[in-house]
Simulated scan of single mutants.
Amino acid sequence: MADEAISVVECPVYDSLKNGRVKASGNKYGNVVELQCDEGYYLAGKSSLKCGANGNWDDDFQTFCAENQCVEPSGISNGFVSASSWKVGATATYTCSEGFRLHGSNQRVCSRNGKWNGSDPYCRMVICEVPPPVEHAKTFDALTQYLYQFEVRYVCKTGYFISDGDALLRCSESGQWIGKVPKCSLVKCKEPVAPAKSKVLVASLTYGSEAQYLCFPGYRLKGSTTVRCDETGNWKGVVPECVPIASGNPPVVANSIVVDSGDHTYNNQILYNWHVGFIS
């Protein structure tokens, strides 16, 4: 009886791997295949398989390429992160709590290598810089930093008023002051009204200035001679009046009759009529 031919054990041909590549030296006993996944996938199983004496590859279970995914993105202090999934291409979005501002990118993408690109952003408390000083305004308790929603109020010094801008500024979530820095201007009074038979002298209409009243000839001043422009923009003091200067009764002249209207004020006249037989 002739010797039976001896043949080498062969394993099934291993020439493809979904989402991966196969590098094989053959499929006979002792041959080895190397398995490698495409970018964005990782190997679930052995990376190399050997054809065994039983005609099978020494693989305990079917090796396959699984799609990479990222781990759950870590949270951030004073904020939160949301992601629709952790697969490759997924986006994680970071948001800060009210009163905090995000530093860094607000989004990270799950890369093919299974890692989130970039670095974790962080939330920093919103801080506004010291508000600018305003000329002729009272100083307030100055801090080195002002937190979100903090308010500062400008108050003009006595004799000044806010002519432009806002008295109240508020620290916004952007770290900027909301409102327009005000301007303090000097208070002004209106032109004073001169009472009858008088004139008024005014050097200035601004706060602290005085208006002086002078009566026309034949009149005297009744009341204060001056009023002052106060912090409210009004003249402080009672406006005087000019009253006619009155003379006493006219003198009695012998041998005459006086014609007297009874008005003995400035520029009024009386008339003397002589008795018969008398002349002046």
Rank of each mutant, 00 (worst) to 15 (best):
N27Q: 11
V155P: 02
V243W: 03
L205R: 12
D230F: 01
S163Q: 07
V200A: 14
Y29N: 06
Q212M: 10
W86M: 14
E210Y: 06
V88W: 12
S47M: 05
E129D: 15
L169N: 02
A137I: 06
Y94N: 06
P195S: 08
V187T: 12
V134K: 04
K157W: 05
N113M: 04
I279T: 13
K87S: 15
S85A: 13
K87P: 02
C11I: 02
I6R: 03
K115Y: 08
V152Q: 11
S82M: 12
A83Y: 15
C110Y: 02
D15C: 00
V152L: 09
G175W: 09
L102I: 13
S247G: 08
S224V: 00
G26R: 10
C65D: 07
S280L: 11
L17N: 05
T139G: 02
N273I: 14
A194I: 01
Q269Y: 13
I270E: 08
G223Y: 11
I178V: 08
F100M: 01
N31F: 04
C184Q: 04
C110H: 07
D164Y: 12
D166R: 02
S198P: 08
S85N: 14
T63I: 11
K199N: 13
A92P: 01
W86H: 15
G223M: 08
S25G: 11
S256Y: 08
C37V: 03
P217H: 06
G52Q: 14
E129P: 02
N19Y: 13
C189D: 09
S198R: 04
P195E: 11
S85W: 11
D38F: 01
A2M: 09
Y94K: 06
V13M: 04
I178T: 13
S163D: 09
V71R: 09
G114W: 06
G99I: 05
A90I: 09
N56Y: 10
M1H: 09
K188Q: 15
D58A: 04
Y219T: 11
W177V: 04
V8E: 13
L201C: 00
W86R: 14
I279S: 13
I127F: 12
L214G: 00
K138Y: 07
A2T: 07
S172R: 06
A44F: 10
A254W: 01
P121Y: 07
